[in-house]
Design a protein around this nucleic acid. Structure first.
Length: 574
DNA sequence: GCCGTTTTCGGCCCGACTGTTTTCAGTCG
């Protein structure tokens, strides 16, 4: 079992215990343990073999023992017993809005409902409102929520989809005369790879008017709840949006609160309490009943004796401790990037010519660009035969002549790692490229040993400079290859191979967890867009988001090097 | 169930909105 699978078991246990009515802190402990296991940059199996399970934050004796049983036998008796006791279909019911553990338990015990389908039927027949405490409105809300759940399908959307929608809504809000400021919050502001709902925060002294104007926007489909402080809607395409209002003098605590993550906020409040302060979205409350309002988010941290912590780091992954110790890294920024090392043209499956991509890269502010079209085996993408590589080399040489001295154009390739582990070009062909990227596009579902061996073979080839989108995942569409990442990272470090953070919001690969581990190990990283057209070059902000979530500084990213340093490094590698 | 710059026991973050139960529980974030 991998980290995600183990984490899922503990998340299910948390849900089941909650339905059972178990103490809430026990439930929270399982959730925290699950999240912690999920966000380890290392294979849980490796940690287990070293006997270091209890070193994981949030994993104590009980969860360690259960993890041990899971990894040893593939099963967990405690979990099986729970599932025997409580129908597993109730977990799906928790995904329905307005249905939590208490209601799910009652529907099951009092009406024998154990699935979303049965819940829908009961709501339609008016059965639900016969329960005490349930009325016609509650029943109608549940029906609406089931409909919404069907529309939503996957539940979370890519940050690449979410951010443009949020920007559009912010634009609308900022046009309102009574709005002083409007910002993103929640996982959107933390630049998580996927976003469940959009959290927006508005500074205003006229909350009722602003909320009214917001729910009247044509893009809003359904109002889930509406108050002056908090309003929750669903857009016509099913995207859920939550808007909070606060007066400007409380905007600092409000923005901090709404940005989360929940776990980060819990830690921060614990720290506040230890200093005799109670922190909420409203203010710091003092023991004597007084309060301190904060307009600026940085001041919230300042009051707690901390430097401001970038939103991307607020995941309770050690950032508060680092802040206390003065060890926060100076995170990379988009403006630190000097070049793009992964781009396609019409020579393979790109949509634009070499010249057009060069102009686009210059416009983006880059000082260098590597053209890295696909290799011969990727027929579907019009991969280049050795003969066409030579033709392309001539065109690139020609393009260089038209360039100002300040811009470097590199001739690279994105070479296939074939299903049998061999590489798509012979070494003497690879030697003539300025830059060689190797990547997996096919046979991603091979067993762990096989697919890992393919990748290791590529890393060990002296001509390979970068491994692109290592896992091959497409968020929400295709699972990552079952790579032994511990081995991959070790090999990359040993052979000085760069690992890519692919900035395409569908990929974001390496993800934040492995990027952090790679950076900690000292493996050089590249932030590339894999652009197939000029507009894609702007994806780099998403890649930088992943890097920032991974605590990465500009020193650890090769795209921050000057063109001269990059060329020197590549030449030295051969 | 986890954890320790108050603690190895006794805590564990805080508030808005909704529906319905005349005083609050449930859900959500």
């Amino acid at each position: 079992m991998n980290n995600a699978e183990v984490a899922q078991v503990f998340e299910d246990i948390a849900d089941l215990l909650e339905i059972k009515g178990e103490k809430v802190f026990k439930v929270i402990a399982y959730r925290r343990g699950a999240e912690s296991i999920r966000s380890q940059g290392r294979d849980i199996n490796a940690i287990w073999k070293e006997g270091k399970l209890e070193d994981i934050a949030g994993v104590g004796k009980a969860i360690a023992e259960k993890t041990d049983e899971l990894l040893r036998t593939g099963k967990l008796e405690y979990y099986e017993n729970l599932k025997h006791e409580i129908p597993i279909g109730l977990l799906d019911m928790l995904k329905v809005g307005d249905v939590g553990p208490k209601k799910a338990a009652r529907f099951w015990k009092e009406l024998d409902i154990t699935s979303v389908e049965q819940l829908e039927a009961a709501a339609k027949s008016g059965e639900l409102q016969e329960l005490s405490g349930m009325g016609a409105k509650s029943e109608a809300r549940i029906l609406e929520s089931i409909e919404a759940l069907k529309r939503r399908q996957t539940g979370r959307m890519s940050i690449g989809v979410a951010l443009p929608i949020a920007e559009r809504l912010l634009g609308e809000l900022r046009q309102h005369p009574m709005v002083k400021a409007a910002e993103t919050a929640g996982s959107l502001r933390r630049l998580r790879e996927t976003v469940g709902d959009l959290d927006l925060l508005v500074s205003t002294d006229h909350p009722e008017e602003v909320m009214q104007a917001f729910v009247e926007l044509p893009i809003v489909g359904r109002v889930r709840s509406k108050g002056p402080v908090k309003t929750s809607v669903e857009l016509i395409d099913g995207v859920r949006v939550q808007v909070w209002t606060h007066p400007s003098e409380r905007f600092g605590t409000a923005l901090q609160y709404a940005t989360g993550s929940k776990d980060h906020n819990v830690r921060l409040r614990e720290l506040a309490l230890s200093m005799g302060l109670s922190l909420s979205d409203q203010a710091f409350k003092l023991d004597d009943g007084g309060e301190i309002t904060v307009a600026n988010e940085a001041e919230v941290y300042e009051k707690l004796g901390l430097p401001w912590i970038a939103p991307e780091m607020r995941e309770d992954r050690g950032e508060i401790q680092a802040a206390r110790n003065g060890d926060l890294p100076k995170l990379i920024e988009v403006k630190n990037l000097r070049g793009e090392l992964h781009a396609h043209t019409t020579w393979s499956d790109g949509k634009n010519s070499i010249d057009e991509m060069v102009r686009a890269a210059m416009k983006e502010g880059h000082k260098y660009l590597a053209i890295t079209d696909h290799s011969q085996s990727l027929g579907i993408a019009n991969g280049l035969t050795v003969k066409r590589v030579e033709q392309q080399r001539k065109e690139i040489a020609k393009a260089r002549k038209g360039l100002k001295a300040k811009f470097a154009l590199l001739h690279g390739t994105e070479m296939e790692i074939l299903a049998d582990g061999s590489l798509d070009y012979a070494d003497e062909v690879l030697a003539r490229f300025d830059l060689v990227i190797a990547s997996l596009h096919t046979s991603l579902r091979q067993p762990r040993k096989q697919v890992t061996a393919r990748m290791l073979n590529a890393i060990r080839n002296p001509h390979v400079d970068i491994i692109a989108h290592p896992s091959g995942r497409l968020i929400g569409k295709r699972e990552p290859a079952d790579l032994d990442m511990d081995q991959i990272l070790e090999a990359a470090l040993e052979h000085g191979v760069i690992l890519e953070i692919n900035s395409n919001p569908e990929r974001l690969d390496l993800n934040d967890i492995y990027a952090r581990r790679a950076a900690e190990m000292g493996i050089p990283l590249a932030i590339n867009t894999d652009a197939h057209r000029p507009e894609h070059l702007a994806f780099r902000s998403f890649g930088v988001g992943v890097a920032r979530r991974a605590w990465v500084t500009s020193k650890q990213v090769v795209n921050c090097w000057t063109a001269a340093r990059m060329q020197k490094w590549l030449k030295a590698r051969g």
